[in-house]
């Protein structure tokens, strides 16, 4: 069932369009991951989906009901959708009162409130913190309490803006398992944005990619900003004055490029130094995705590539291995 339907949604600030979505439909009960580079419009879209800020133009339906972007209507829709911010803030009081806030607004009886608060805290593994002062919690604890506070409101949709940003690995895994558990137990539609593509692939059933305010296919990964430079009769894209990526001929100077992860191949090493157009880097991460393996290779900047499982098996790739990669020119897009 279609939960959200967005048509010609546009958001502009001071004459600059930051979001321009022709059409987007989101179904109930799924986990969606929203990816894209900084400034792509992810947070703007999440704010619109959370009914916190109306778009400059466009139409939207929620559960089949047309959304009127006036204060009273938005407040009514907000009762069904809760956003957990990238850096959530807790009210300067106890954990109990923080979670109680949304329940009081929904006029839930004291007895029921206590029960819901207990179960929400259990869900995020923070029951022992029920009477703790919210101001003295760590970053990871704050995020978990913020999720419990959102969950207590029994939303139909839980929206999270980079739920694992700035957390250590242990807390990232904690949050990931909480997200999975919330979805399993409550069948809540979850929409979260992340820069961690592997995390998105692990958790989500659907993937939305934003680039320059528009929904695009997921080809636009490995986005870098730099300048075109010529060296030994060949054109390169220079990033941060240190990384040179061979690119097809172009008349652009300062630009952005994206490299399709499927267009990057690991090649056999030939000698102690990489031979152009190869780049040499260290394998920093490996993850399993639906039909392929994703590797993160540090060539001076972090590049994400995907390969088939049989290639991965044949290369016997390990973390920290030094590898040479080549980028097929067809996989490079200039912006």
């Amino acid at each position: 069932m279609t939960l959200y339907f967005l048509k010609d949604i546009r958001q502009s600030y001071a004459g600059r369009t930051v979001l321009d979505i022709a059409e987007l439909a989101l179904d109930a009960g799924n986990i969606y991951t929203l990816t894209g580079p900084n400034g792509a419009g992810k947070t703007t879209l999440l704010n619109i989906l959370s009914f916190l800020s109306p778009p400059s133009a466009g139409q939207m339906t929620f559960n089949g009901i047309p959304v009127k972007f006036n204060a009273a209507s938005l407040q009514q829709f907000r009762k069904s959708v809760v956003l957990v911010d990238q850096h959530p803030i807790l009210f300067s009081t106890t954990v109990f009162k923080n979670i109680e806030f949304g329940l009081k607004i929904r006029k839930i009886s004291r007895k029921k409130r206590n029960r819901i608060i207990q179960s929400s805290l259990s869900m995020v593994g923070m029951k022992a913190f029920i009477n703790a002062d919210a101001r003295y919690l760590s970053g990871g604890e704050t995020k978990r309490i913020a999720i419990a506070r959102a969950l207590a409101c029994a939303p139909n949709v839980l929206i999270m803006d980079e739920p694992t940003a700035n957390l250590d690995i242990e807390n990232q895994l904690n949050i990931e398992s909480i997200i999975r558990e919330i979805h399993r137990q409550h069948n809540v539609t979850i929409i979260f944005c992340t820069h961690n593509i592997a995390q998105g692939a692990r958790l989500a059933s659907q993937h939305i990619h934003l680039f320059a305010g528009r929904v695009t296919d997921t080809e636009h990964e490995n986005i870098f900003k730099g300048e075109i430079t010529a060296l030994n009769g060949r054109q390169y894209f220079r990033i941060d004055e240190k990384v040179l990526i061979p690119v097809p001929a172009t008349d652009k100077r300062e630009t952005k490029i994206s490299i399709h992860p499927g267009a990057i191949k690991i090649v056999d090493r030939r000698g102690d130094e990489p031979v152009p157009p190869s780049l040499r880097g260290k394998v920093m991460g490996l993850s399993v995705e639906k039909d392929w393996i994703r590797a993160m290779v540090d060539v001076g900047v972090l590049i994400s590539l995907i390969m088939e499982t049989n290639e991965y098996d044949s290369r016997n790739l390990r973390i920290n291995d030094l590898v040479d990669i080549e980028i097929h020119p067809d996989g490079i897009t200039f912006f």
Partner: peptide, 26 residues
């Protein structure tokens, strides 16, 4: 007062008046 207090109150279902009370309390 951090603008996120108002946003948090609103997303938890507060009316503009209830969100104002949260800010005054902070």
């Amino acid at each position: 007062i951090d603008a996120r207090y108002r946003k948090t109150a609103m997303t938890l279902g507060a009316s503009p008046f209830q969100a104002a009370l949260v800010i005054l309390k902070e």
